[in-house]
Amino acid sequence: MRGFSTNAIHAGQEPDPTTGAVIVPIHPSSTFIQDEVNSPRGGYEYSRAANPTRSALQECLAALEGARHAFAFGSGMGAADVALRVQLRPGDHVVIPHDAYGGTFRIIDKVLTQWGVEYSTVDLGDVAALRDALRPTTKLVWCETPTNPLLGIADVTAVAEVAHAGGARLVVDNTFASPYLQNPLALGADVVLHSTTKYVGGHSDVVGGALVLDDDELAEQIRFTQNSVGSVPGPFDAWLTLRGVKTLAVRMERHSDNAERVAEMLAAHPAVSQVLYPGLPTHPGHETAAKQMRRFGGMVSFRVAAGKEAALAVCAGTELFTLAESLGGVESLIEHPGEMTHASVAGSVLEVPDDLIRLSVGIEDIDDLLEDLRGALGRV
């Protein structure tokens, strides 16, 4: 059985049989020749349905998650839309984390409820609470671990057992962990979602998403729906993502190294009231994360003791940490979730603290990153 980095570099990426090119070609063609009616020469007909560059990416992602099927999408939310669309019908109920990503909350709360889908928010770290939240109409449990932006941890195996006992499937958003740090299918999940914009792509230069799973019947439903709604990436986007994934393992090691040092520094800083990082022994999900993750990742959130205005000043006061949305690139980013990525949950039960800052810790020299944060914190 091949190792992770070997699969990242080789799965779906054999040298081109025509030219011998070592790197998978970009196939921009929208259509493909057919030798006879309904007899495409190379197995491809039209790029909305399938494209060779996209197929290479999908084969690689499936290998990294140890799955039979993978589907690449034009964005993480495009993947989420199809995952929800194929598994929910009017009158169905879905459970989501009490601190879910704002975009996930928005599509469920603002879009799916218009079609009769109901939802409940639960702390998925509390298995008893999840069990109590299930209804006869519950068809889906939607899990993030770690969560965005509060870095909550759910025990995937325990959540899967409860969901399956209640007749529901489990979808795990694995974006924060990446396939290198965590493999939810092996822990009992039914579907894994990634915003490949983030760690999988890794360079802040491409938007994409993915669904990965083993279930053949569900995979066919996803394939049909994806083609029907046209939620696909272009070949250049697929190629960029495939280029990025080759270095995922080495990048995640450096992200984790740096984030651990940042979390330790913040935990000792007098201007910080709380650090949210599963690698800290004080984190309530530390033991669970240590059990199901290889390392603890590159995302760190923290609360500023002096409140919202001070938090905003810290966000504006860094130099190496760029004030921007998104995460998972090689460069370090800083943001204020309440005013930026999670503004859509303001006023809801998912509203995040207004003194919260989220860091995507990059792979720069750690001493430079620590100095940058200390400087910004020292000015508030």
Rank of each mutant, 00 (worst) to 15 (best):
K291N: 13
P235W: 10
V24F: 01
A133G: 00
P149D: 03
V250L: 14
D215E: 07
I107G: 02
A21T: 04
V37D: 12
V159L: 00
Y119I: 04
P270W: 07
P235Y: 12
V22H: 08
H194D: 11
R41N: 09
E36C: 03
A50P: 01
V300C: 01
S360D: 09
G338F: 15
A311H: 02
P17S: 01
Y46I: 14
I222E: 05
A62E: 05
V212G: 02
S120D: 11
E36P: 00
E264F: 06
G297C: 02
D214R: 10
R254I: 13
E371F: 11
T288R: 06
S256E: 10
L57C: 05
L370F: 10
R2T: 15
L280V: 10
S75T: 13
E36I: 04
M293I: 10
E59M: 15
P270K: 09
L57D: 07
L320C: 01
R41T: 15
D155K: 03
R254D: 11
Y119H: 07
S75F: 06
R68N: 15
A8E: 08
S332T: 03
A259D: 08
L323F: 14
T31I: 13
L124K: 09
T137K: 02
A133P: 00
E144C: 02
D216W: 11
E309S: 13
E339H: 11
W142S: 09
E36G: 12
T53C: 01
T6Y: 13
I363K: 00
H283K: 09
I9G: 09
P179W: 06
H286Y: 09
T19H: 00
N51W: 06
Q226D: 09
E144N: 02
L370K: 12
V232P: 00
S204E: 15
G91R: 00
S231F: 14
V82I: 15
E331M: 12
F105S: 05
V245F: 05
A21V: 05
W239R: 14
D372Y: 07
L242M: 08
R68V: 10
G12W: 11
G20K: 02
S326K: 14
T31F: 12
G230W: 04
R48K: 13
I96A: 07
G43H: 02
P179Y: 01
L181P: 00
T322I: 14
W115H: 15
K246S: 08
F296V: 08
L211C: 03
T113Q: 06
T241H: 07
A128E: 15
L356V: 07
V245K: 09
G102L: 04
T147Y: 00
A100F: 10
T53K: 02
Q114K: 14
F302E: 05
A316G: 11
T138R: 03
P179H: 09
K110T: 15
H286N: 12
Q58W: 07
L312R: 14
G12Q: 10
F73S: 01
T53F: 03
C143Q: 10
V361W: 02
I153D: 04
M299K: 12
S55F: 12
